[in-house]
Design a protein around this nucleic acid. Sequence first.
DNA 1: ATAATTAAGGACAAAAATACCTTTAATTAG
DNA 2: CTAATTAAAGGTATTTTTGTCCTTAATTAT
Lengths: 146, 146
Amino acid sequence: MFSKATEYALRATIYIAQKSSVDNKLSLTEIAQAIDSPPSFTAKILQLLTKENCVIHSVRGPNGGFYITEKNKLLPLKKILEAVNENDLFEKCILGLKKCSETNPCPLHFQYKPVKQELIHLFQTNTILELSEKADSESMFINNKL
Amino acid sequence: MFSKATEYALRATIYIAQKSSVDNKLSLTEIAQAIDSPPSFTAKILQLLTKENCVIHSVRGPNGGFYITEKNKLLPLKKILEAVNENDLFEKCILGLKKCSETNPCPLHFQYKPVKQELIHLFQTNTILELSEKADSESMFINNKL
DNA sequence: ATAATTAAGGACAAAAATACCTTTAATTAG
DNA sequence: CTAATTAAAGGTATTTTTGTCCTTAATTAT
């Protein structure tokens, strides 16, 4: 479904929302271990999340690291997708047709449409906070280790 | 969503179902042009469709080419996904967690679940025939040219 | 039989995604 | 001020996906 980059972005952001605060920043190393992702690649993705949409924040130096503000926890998951440039994924034709539209639909267009809209809805309505709380309360581990 | 390989497999099969018969086989060249795909790469994918699941058939030599039997037109789209090894796409955790399950769910698990099932349903219930007929009647062009 | 046609199959090439590494910049603690 | 720590930035390497090309095999028509 999603690219590795997007999966890491979602997992990392949820983990950061769970564990971080302005005075408890998380290091790249901790994040990558927790969400089971390659550290260096994760670094690039976290850079996107700090730059492109300012979903998360970062501070360099000792006791530096990544954190997310309470305000930004209220952002929808959609913002994470935007940051890693995978926001248009659900907009695309499922058969990969460039010209597929309401007036020139592909054979799956109208059946895929409601599914597509549920997906968009899911990522537009769910906030980072909500996801991180679920990850807490239902002891859903982001951790991916065997 | 899908890989290029899968998109080409779906488009090609629909086109073959629209236009071919045992005594009117379609050449690789015609198919690739019609669905706007790279011919050589499409050849590989058509091989998968003839071998892995025998979704389509092929004959070499003059007046040879690809066709699909009336019987096979009744196969669900799922069979095409199986042939190109992308059948497990919808089964996977949307956050990419290996251990995600009903008892150890990721924070999106239960919200994604119904969407996932609609997708599975869509590819299990729709037959190749139904799609090709829609492509006909609603003049939905598989063609992708600008 | 021979030549022409068309898919099959294998090797190869290019592009994109994923992953790693090294240097630099910023920040903090001592 | 100096040393240590940590992310930023850039380049490089690996893997996967996508795409090409060439030879071989099968079939048909002459």
